[in-house]
Design a protein around this nucleic acid. Structure first.
Lengths: 222, 222
DNA sequence: AATAAATATGAAAAAATTTTAATAATTGTT
DNA sequence: AACAATTATTAAAATTTTTTCATATTTATT
């Protein structure tokens, strides 16, 4: 997950970068609007955080320009000003949300989560790290290619992503993914988990699917 | 495609029914709001056309009640009144569109097409007759069951539905559905078309896929 | 360390899907 | 009606996916 932070105040930018990095995001900082636009052109960001008040090109103007050129990822605008007209203006220029300084990092994270959730739902995707699960085409989209998954592997990965960070046991998987009325006396879950693990390993050295001995599996992105 | 017409003026109701039937829709008429609500409860309509001004329960109130109880199909409100406040009110109560009398049937049809297109896109489905192609689960949903389609049959049916009423030839299908760089010297298209025809025949006596000799296939719903 | 339970792995069997190949049937032209 | 081209159908071969089965490996407990 790649986030661009466009913020001319270095202390704020660095603090945001530090906190977002700790949450598992990859971040880049642009110190002004022009640099932001240039970075967006040359990178694949999943969302933008734009400070409204920057010299030369404001965050709002960056937002307008990017939306005008077809950029469709989530944009959050940060500003010290707080009135309804500004907010309406921001949203009319294509921002997805708008946060007034000062704000807590927790609030920013909640807003980020909300706009990403909305974006994923609107586009029928589930994002994790640099991957995207395409719910329409039943494909895993990596930075370099698009792999059509066999149906059971797709369903299993989708289930894990919808239950990220939660232990799911084999009985639950048989019921919910396989839609079986009872758990069979064979290890089809283990084998399919192995096949999915193998497939993910082709594209990342991270181990996303962890076994919790005696309990089940947990999908983790950190 | 099933449409409910709630309209207390018999001549209007009958005229709408006649015209919509000629366009291939199945229609039912409710003469008042109460009957409309009852019919919605006992039928599976794909959309509603509600006259705003009916005795007792107005179309607007029917709309509010149904939306309140979770009805999520498209609703078009008809009214003789024409002012912005009424329109905002209708849309705020969950109507998808709003047409002022008098209107031409052509305009109504255009509005119906627009709201149905929006509904299908929002729900990731393609409707045809009493069927629904579920683009997320790659299933054909009939009035009685939900059939998961093998991938190639799903892709072929989706392609036909996206090109309804248009002749598509075998070369195009090889390129767009099979994603082949050239047309093979085997009859895989014919065989898959046969398989899909067979599957549709299990659920309808209508022949949707017609062969245009020497040209290709055309998917028709009438 | 020994033991048992749980899980991972590899191979193969079973099932499903797709494609190929052969031939029957249909269409259009002469 | 004869002929050729196109399409439909059938069966089987090929391929892919899913599941089963056997066994290796890991985990936890004593």
């Amino acid at each position: 997950m790649n986030i661009l932070i466009a913020e001319d105040e270095k202390s704020i930018a660095n603090s945001l970068e530090k906190n977002l990095t700790e949450e598992g995001f990859n971040t880049k900082i642009a110190v002004n609007g022009e640099e932001a636009i240039s970075l967006v052109k040359n990178n694949n960001f999943d969302m933008l955080i734009l400070d409204w008040r920057m010299p030369e090109l404001t965050g709002l103007e960056v937002c307008k320009i990017l939306r005008g050129s077809g950029f469709d990822k989530p944009i959050i605008l940060l500003t010290a000003l707080s009135d309804v007209e500004k907010k309406v203006n921001a949203l009319n220029c294509g921002a997805d949300d708008y946060i007034t300084k000062p704000f807590s990092f927790e609030e920013l994270m909640a807003r980020i989560s909300a706009v990403l959730r909305r974006y994923q739902k609107a586009h029928n995707i589930i994002l994790f790290d640099d991957f995207k699960l395409d719910l329409i085409n039943h494909s895993l989209v990596t930075p370099t290619e698009k792999i059509k998954l066999p149906e059971k592997e797709f369903e299993l990965l989708k289930y894990f992503l919808e239950n990220k960070g939660v232990i799911v046991n084999k009985e639950t998987l048989c019921r919910d993914v396989w839609e079986l009325p009872f758990t069979p006396n064979t290890n089809l879950v283990e084998v399919t988990v192995k096949n999915l693990r193998r497939k993910l390993e082709e594209y990342s050295e991270k181990k996303y699917i962890k076994t919790v001995y005696g309990e089940g599996y947990i999908f983790l992105t950190e």
